[in-house]
Amino acid sequence: MPLTIETCVARHTGDRKEQQDRVALFAHPRMSGTMLAVLADGMGGHSGGAMAAEQVLLKAKQNFEAYAPRSETPEHLLASVVNEAHLVIKLTRFTSEQDPHSTAVVFMLQPGRADWAHCGDSRLYHFRGSQLVSRTQDHSLVGEMLRSGKIDEEAALKHPQRNVLLSCLGSEREPRIGHGNQAPLMAGDSFLLCSDGLWGYFSDAELGAAVAGMPPREAAQKLISQARERAGGYGDNITVAIVRLVEAPARNGNGNGNGAVRR
C-alpha cells in the first residue's frame, strides 16, 4: 500500500524564562523516503541547556547526511548520534562555566521500517491508530521505580523526584541508550516524540486519541494548549514532533507515492 507522511514539530517556552528544548526534521539528501526526527531537552541553567540540546541536533544532522545503509545499520547510526553528541557536550564543560546536559530522542524513518534511540526521559510513542504499540522507557529514578513495581503510573506523574535522571548526555557516565524499531509499517502508524513538559500531563490514551484523531499540526496545537492549562502556571518547556503515515492519494502516471512528505 503506497504511503505518504504527515509531519509537524512544535515548541512552547511554557512558564520558563528560556526555551532550552530543540527539535528538528531532516530529509536525507540522497535517499528518497528517508528522514530523521530528533528532539533534545537541554539542562544546565542559563544558556547551557540550550547549547547542549543544539549539539544533539547538529550531530544528528551531520551523521544522518553521511548515513550509508550498505555499511552502517540504523542502530549504529542512532547510537553514534547519542554518543558523539554526549562527547561534544562534555567537552564544552572545559571551555565554559556552564554544566550542560541534554536528553535525546532520535527517530529514523525509511521505506518499510522505523528505528529509534533515546537517552533520558524525553519519549517516543508508537501508536497504531489510537492504540499504543510501544513507548520508550525513561532513564530516570521514577522510571526505575515504576519498572520495579514500587509505584504505579499515577504515582509516577506526581512523584517529587520525577525529574531525577539516571542517564543523560553530558554527564560523567557514558549515556544509557535505549533502542527500538518497527517493521513493516502501515497506514495509521504514528510516532510522537516529546519532552517531559508535554507527556507529564497526559495518559497514553489521551496522547493516542489526539495523534490519531486530527492532522499533526492540529494535534500538536491541542496537546500544547492542554498541557499549558494543566500546568497551572508552572509548566516546563514543551516540545513535540509528530510523524504519521497515511495512505497516499491516487495519482496518474508511474510512481507509488512512497517517500512523499507533507508538512
Rank of each mutant, 00 (worst) to 15 (best):
A156F: 13
A156R: 11
K158L: 14
K158R: 15
P160Q: 06
R162C: 05
R162Y: 10
R162P: 01
R162W: 01
R162N: 12
N163P: 01
L165G: 06
L166Q: 07
L166Y: 03
S167H: 05
G170F: 08
E172Y: 14
E172K: 15
E172T: 14
E172L: 14
R173Y: 02
E174Q: 15
P175F: 06
R176D: 12
I177D: 05
I177N: 06
G178Y: 09
G178V: 11
G180R: 06
G180D: 02
G180M: 06
G180L: 05
N181W: 05
N181Y: 14
A183L: 05
A183R: 12
L185P: 04
M186Q: 15
M186R: 15
G188N: 08
G188V: 12
L192E: 02
L193I: 01
L193P: 00
D196A: 08
D196Y: 01
D196R: 08
D196E: 10
D196V: 04
D196T: 10
G197N: 03
G197E: 00
L198H: 00
G200W: 02
S203R: 12
E206H: 01
E206R: 07
E206T: 09
G208N: 08
G208Q: 04
G208A: 02
A209Q: 09
A210F: 03
A210R: 02
V211L: 10
A212Y: 09
G213P: 05
M214V: 04
P215L: 04
P215E: 12
P216R: 02
P216I: 04
P216Y: 03
E218R: 14
A219F: 08
